[in-house]
């Protein structure tokens, strides 16, 4: 093979290096979008200069948050498993993560959105639905990502030293989780409760 051909078919390792940096840059970019939503929340949820928040179902908030945090543990377990060629725990970890992700989504979409605040209810509704909606969209895409990885994993793809797809999926899932760690207190905990 000529040297050109070698440089075109870069080694897996080189591609991995590029992919990792690319993914992290994408997260930096997304952080600005989520940051903008947080800025909007603290800008709009104020009364006489004091930070306020609506009365939300605290139990629900705690449950969905715990479920999401727990899912990150199983995601990590799946990734570690494939790094050790342990297919069984890899596949089960993915399924459990996806399931917990769906539970989180159900909690947000059915119960939180079914509560007394609607999108058209002033800045409370707008920000609540804006933030949870944007986050839920990311969770949903994460679940789809996990299921695609699971489906391919079941067919025998991925191995201990070639599983960038799994790694990307896992980091993405943790990232979406991390965003919620900022959103949860902003929506549920910080500020004086009004209405």
């Amino acid at each position: 093979m000529s040297s050109v051909a070698v440089s075109i078919h870069e080694s897996y390792r080189e591609k991995l290096r590029n992919n990792r940096l690319g993914l992290w840059l994408f997260f930096v970019s997304e952080a600005f979008m989520f940051g903008g939503l947080l800025a909007a929340r603290f800008y709009l949820w104020r009364e006489d200069g004091v930070v306020v928040r609506p009365a939300l179902d605290q139990q629900l908030g705690l449950i969905v948050t715990s479920v999401l945090l727990l899912s990150s543990y199983f995601m990590n377990r799946a990734e570690t498993a494939i790094a050790h060629d342990d297919r069984e725990n890899f596949l089960s970890g993915l399924l459990i993560t996806a399931f917990l992700g769906l539970v989180f989504l159900a909690g947000v979409v059915i119960f939180e959105w079914g509560g007394h605040i609607k999108p058209w209810d002033g800045v409370f509704g707008a920000v609540l639905f804006g933030m949870t909606g944007m986050h839920a969209l990311h969770v949903l895409s994460g679940v789809i990502f996990i299921l695609i990885i699971w489906w391919n994993g079941r067919k025998g793809h991925f191995s201990a030293d070639r599983h960038w797809g799994v790694e990307a999926c896992a980091i993405y899932w943790h990232y979406v989780d991390l965003v919620w760690i900022f959103f949860y207190p902003a929506l549920y905990l910080i500020g004086r409760v009004v209405h």
Partner: peptide
Amino acid sequence: LGMGFFDPGLAGPGKALLEG
């Protein structure tokens, strides 16, 4: 969807944060 981020006059007067 009528989400009132910017337009100050979207909803009628009333409780500012839930309706304004």
